[in-house]
Write a protein that binds this DNA or RNA. Sequence first.
DNA 1: CCTCGCTCGGGTGTATACAATGTATACGGT
DNA 2: ACCGTATACATTGTATACACCCGAGCGAGG
Lengths: 213, 213
Amino acid sequence: MAPTAKDTRPLAVRVYEQISSDIIAGTIEAGTALVQEQVAAQYGVSRTPVRDALTQLTLEGLATLVPGRGYIVNTLSPQDVKDVYEVRYTLESLAARQACGLHSPQQLVRLRGMVDEFETVDPADAEELFRMGAAFHAALIDPCPNTYLRNTLAAMWDHPIARRITMTYRQGPEHQSKVARDHRRILEALKTDDPDTIAEVLRYCHNPNDTLD
Amino acid sequence: MAPTAKDTRPLAVRVYEQISSDIIAGTIEAGTALVQEQVAAQYGVSRTPVRDALTQLTLEGLATLVPGRGYIVNTLSPQDVKDVYEVRYTLESLAARQACGLHSPQQLVRLRGMVDEFETVDPADAEELFRMGAAFHAALIDPCPNTYLRNTLAAMWDHPIARRITMTYRQGPEHQSKVARDHRRILEALKTDDPDTIAEVLRYCHNPNDTLD
DNA sequence: CCTCGCTCGGGTGTATACAATGTATACGGT
DNA sequence: ACCGTATACATTGTATACACCCGAGCGAGG
């Protein structure tokens, strides 16, 4: 745990991560007013990086600037989460279709290895599970030629709401094995080199009925 | 032209709009280094709003921060434009499917009126054509219940690359009438209340083969 | 009692000064 | 001649101070 390598990233990024993770964890309730100066004092930094962080949060829809009152933390209803999930699934399906049949043998081997590794992760380590899951999806659509689409999806995986989905709704060892099973199914579908098959399997795996609500 | 109502928006927004429009117009070439202090001096403002503007540009993929050199303007190949367009079309199709059958009679009347009005716009007024086109699409998917999806699409219409598409590749009176025709086709499809029909018409209208390249 | 206007305070927008970091260049050793 | 290193420079990150805007609360007048 010894942080021999000090975090050298900009303060704005660290402040942003802290606030967003507090929001999705529920530590900061919806409706709370985030005031630049208060937040700055709380983290022992100046208003400048706080301003950057709050701007980012607003851009992502987690907060709203209310004149004269500060940045208000938006409510995140289950419907909002579903909405984000639906868009993400749609784009991921598009990307997978385009990536279909373009995976190199090395990439396929690597994907298979990632699933195996995924199953060995400590079920309690939500952060690691999240990272590995995102890595699998990233590798899956890596051959997709649409760069903008790949970047958009990468941003959505890093999106706080996506984290909220994973951390809140997807927990426990049984879910870990379900995800591993889904990923194996996806790899099976990949063998067919048929975009429709891939999309169909993705639709099945992303079916929110058993993960959300 | 008398600016009786002074622009009261934040400087960061105005600087951002100026730079992004200069980029898509080609006034600022790809590879150009945007240095905070230089830009600030150029517009007669301080570095703070310039910083905000450049951050926004980076977030949207129009520039990249290169340490020690400044913000470098990214190249925008026709392929990049196509990529953005494809994602936009995909999401718009999804939104239209969900909005299908949910339009109130008033909304349908309004949509029809917008198409008529669109045809009366001066073909040389690219800015107005862009605004009206965006308004039509916004009204089209307005009943879509997925708020996140609606917001995402709204952001994409305002995206500089979308402006580039409209301003660069879609010009002239014949294109104006083509768009009006397409919009009428979409309205016809709306009558069927069938999501597949809508999606099919959208796919036809968004076929980039005759508008891009 | 209601309404209009004014002052006051909280909050963000903007400007400027300072600190940290990474790059390019020049110089000396090999 | 080449490579490693140290130094100077360019650029962004951060902190602080000032200016503007908006809303709330209070008081005077109808």
